[in-house]
Simulated assay, not measured.
Amino acid sequence: MSTQLSDRLREATRDERAGARPIPFIASLASGRLPLAAYAELLGQYWFIYESLELASTAMADDPMARPFVFPELFRVPALETDLRFLFGPRWQSRIHALPATTTYCTRIRSAAFGRATEYVAHHCTRYLADLSGGQWLRQAVVEAYGFRRDGFRFFVFEGIDPPLFRARYRDRLNSAPWARRQQDAFLAEVATAYRLNLDLLAELRDNWT
């Protein structure tokens, strides 16, 4: 029996997933040891990343291999803009600037995820499945740490979506994707790249704030 792609993904990212949560920057945010400005900068960097990724979703919506993984209900840019307006005020766009690691990350999305379905799905699942799993833990932590009530954490809120059910649905789509072994390998390689780019960004934020 061949191994399902979701199982290959879980195995391929075992080390990365194990190392993601103890990252000093995330741990410091979760405990409230960093100023609110550090959290605001994280969301600012995410705005650049999700803008690139969601432009890729629009570009890939008619691709038969990518289409099953285009979920407009997951789009984060509107929620990020709501949060950034709350955190920075109405001129929030003039207050955020892409860090070097963010620029590298966005460049990779633009070069890999526009036009190649497997690479698009790699970046898509790396970001959104993380948001629907560990991101929900971080949501609770920052709400408690920074005293948010209704605003400031909308990025983590997926209206009308049950995270465990959606993750299961996503895994089913991965397992039913009609990809040859070489396409699966390309997908897994790009997932590893996406994980590394995310960790590089968090490391740069750590250096800036800790």
Rank of each mutant, 00 (worst) to 15 (best):
A20I: 10
P178C: 11
C106R: 10
A130F: 01
T107R: 11
T107Y: 01
A112P: 01
D162P: 08
R21N: 05
V143Q: 14
L53K: 14
E144G: 03
A130M: 02
W179N: 14
L55Q: 08
A194F: 03
L55V: 10
R139P: 09
F158V: 02
T126W: 03
R8D: 07
G134E: 00
E204H: 15
A56F: 03
R8G: 06
N175T: 08
R8T: 09
D83V: 01
A12V: 10
A59C: 06
G89S: 11
T107A: 10
L74M: 11
Y105F: 15
R182F: 06
D83Y: 09
L99W: 04
A180F: 07
P64H: 15
F156N: 06
R196F: 03
T82W: 05
E81P: 03
Q45W: 00
A141D: 04
M1T: 08
F86I: 05
P22M: 06
D172Y: 10
Y120V: 03
W92P: 04
D172M: 10
G89Q: 11
A61K: 10
Q4D: 06
R108Q: 07
F86K: 08
R139A: 09
A112L: 13
W137K: 06
A203G: 13
Q45K: 04
A101H: 03
A130V: 14
L9K: 08
W209F: 15
P72H: 14
L29K: 03
A59P: 00
W179M: 05
F69Y: 12
E41I: 00
R181V: 12
M1A: 15
T102M: 05
E11S: 09
P68F: 11
S28W: 03
S31Q: 15
Q136K: 10
Y105L: 08
S133E: 13
F88H: 15
N198S: 14
A180V: 04
R108K: 08
P100R: 05
E54S: 13
I96P: 01
Y170S: 07
F75K: 14
L132V: 08
S176T: 15
A112E: 06
L34E: 02
A180D: 11
V70H: 07
R91E: 14
A177G: 10
D185Y: 01
A79L: 09
I23N: 02
R10Y: 04
H123D: 06
T118L: 04
C125W: 02
Q93V: 05
L129P: 02
D172L: 10
Q184C: 14
F75Q: 06
E159G: 10
